[in-house]
Design a binder for these strands. Structure first.
Lengths: 336, 336
DNA sequence: CCGGTTCGCCGAACCGGTTCGACAGTCGAA
DNA sequence: TTCGACTGTCGAACCGGTTCGGCGAACCGG
């Protein structure tokens, strides 16, 4: 069931079969048919490893996701699904590597074993060892998020500073005069997670601009942490009536916490977030949020990567997204 | 940067380098060190495609997930994460293929291109073309769910019939005398999705056994469908006070629908489900549910697959899980 | 001192494709 | 009628590893 077998049965040489298959050189219609018939009969499919070895490319892209320990947010999940789908559309396979900031075995295998033609790396840090590694392996890649040295790489990112800023403005417009930011986990932000850092910046700037009180909180990416951050906010700044967040995972906990404190959303406290559209809609009450277009980002990431694989030495392109805020039911005028 | 280069620099033959690397034949300590030094200096990593070609195995497993169009449930998500993690632990890479009941290009590439040593196939149907394909390619695989001819393959499944039965019994124990089943989508069940079929069976049996009224509803896998199924239930059988479900995705909608009807959970209506533990906990109110141990299933699936790759001709093993129901706050005695 | 093991390494073949140079045959133009 | 171009195919080399048979040297006991 290899190419030699096909060649023998069709009475031609192996190279002719190869050319008939790839179309890289013309083959007469008659032989092409004869070969095709044999192929159909045995339903032969070329061996991927052999082809990869000879061609020097694998027709596979790597997708580096956060380690399994940290469960993916809905946004990330939608993104992964979109990447897989977009890749399938252009006949690329997707190899998964669950790798954190430091490159581990899985990541290393993927990169230096040349198992992929390029990679999409999620959850980029401001300083990211994986990016350095990819740069000096000269493997094409696209980051979801960007490092401090943004010009050296292709990336797609969401403008968290602006979005969180808009959340604050939205709350201020509604009359809220004391708001809190529920950021991502301390570890993540400490490790230089861009969205966390930029959300804090954007929050600070917007709060200052509007002259309202703003308190930034870090919060673990889980419901329990969400609940306890509400307790802290209530204890330290009971006057807070608006919450802006990019921490999806904590939100159910935040909700529980507010309930425990006898507070209703949005009557007593408004919540505005940055989240996956579907998820924001299904939240109760439906969440006023900047809907991150994760599917679109996934498709664009693949597009960008394919482009870069084809032309690795061009100037890296960047895409910075700033989706509008969708008004839903979780925000309302401040109580008085 | 290939094995020949290493060999030349270390002053040995290519085969010796190979043996030093794999340990498949003894190499003197002195040469081993010399080779290792060269390898470290150039940080050489063997090319995966070449190795795969020569060895006849790829050190990669395939994970066949439902197509991206249908978003994954939390259960499935946890499962995927667990598989990736478990695979990484034994130095296996994971190749993703989003493929529905009919095998498509991506699936076909994976299987017949021999890109993987084995596969884990999610969302198995009672009759599944992919299973047939895998069987006649003689590629080791593990199904999540089982076909009508269960003995021919390895699988892991959740005993939905029993679990939904237990949900009914739980509701009956609480005094509910009219209950409804919110099943998965009509298309899915029509296509022979085992859990949907067996949930209906289990529901029917338990309802009959307890002598209570039971109504089975199919329901799309999304919030909107959840809302409308509640409307239908209210219209057709207003006496229903208990809902059993395995449709995670519809549940937020069910919740909204009940709210719209002025009904509170669990005061007016109890809900019992089969769902991912984490998700059930974060639901509001926390969901009484049979917590499907998705992480454990993922790990077991990998384990089973590895076993099967090592010994393809043994009798297929099966694992049927029946996790206990965790009591949370969504179920309560029937109102009277 | 000799014959048989054992140890350590080498060379060649192989895995299954792709690709390049060459060559025979046909055709058209000079 | 000859020469050049083009078409269709072949053979061989190559991609970068693994694996097997064999060979020389060291080592052993008799």
């Amino acid at each position: 069931m290899n190419i030699g077998e096909i060649a023998r049965r069709a009475g031609v040489s192996r190279s002719t079969v190869s050319y008939a298959l790839t179309g890289k050189r013309p083959v007469s219609e008659a032989t092409r048919r004869r070969i095709q018939d044999v192929i159909d009969e045995l339903d032969y499919k070329p061996n991927a490893a052999a082809r990869a070895l000879a061609e020097g490319r694998t027709r596979t892209i790597g997708l580096v996701i956060p380690p399994a320990a940290a469960r993916l947010t809905h946004m990330q999940l939608d993104f992964v699904a979109a990447v897989v789908e977009a890749a399938a559309k252009v006949d690329l396979d997707v190899l998964l590597s669950p790798s954190g900031g430091d490159h581990d075995r899985s990541f290393e295998r993927m990169i230096s074993g040349r198992r992929v033609d390029g990679a999409i790396v999620m959850e980029i840090r401001v300083q990211d060892a994986r990016v350095e590694r990819l740069l000096d392996e000269e493997l094409p890649f696209v980051g979801i998020g960007h490092t401090a040295r943004a010009d050296r790489m292709c990336w797609i990112d969401v403008d968290y500073a602006t979005l969180i800023g808009r959340c604050v403005h939205h709350l201020a417009d509604l009359g809220h005069s004391a708001v809190a930011l529920v950021n991502r986990s301390p570890e993540l932000v400490a490790s230089g997670y861009g969205p966390g850092l930029r959300a804090a910046e954007g929050f600070g700037a917007a709060v200052a601009e509007r002259g309202i009180a703003g308190y930034a909180y870090l919060c673990g990416d889980d419901a329990a942490s969400g609940r306890s951050v509400v307790e802290r906010i209530r204890a330290e700044h009971p006057e807070v009536t608006g919450i802006a967040t990019l921490n999806e995972a904590a939100l159910p906990g935040v909700q529980h916490g507010l309930e425990d404190a006898g507070l209703r959303v949005p009557r007593d406290v408004s919540i505005v977030g940055v989240a996956a559209a579907q998820w924001a809609q299904d939240f109760r009450p439906p969440l006023t949020a900047a809907d991150v277009p994760a599917q679109q980002m996934g498709a664009q990431a693949v597009e960008l990567l394919v482009e870069r694989i084809a032309a690795p030495d061009t100037i890296p392109r960047h895409i910075l997204l700033t989706p509008p805020i969708s008004l839903r039911s979780s925000s309302a005028p401040a109580p008085r």
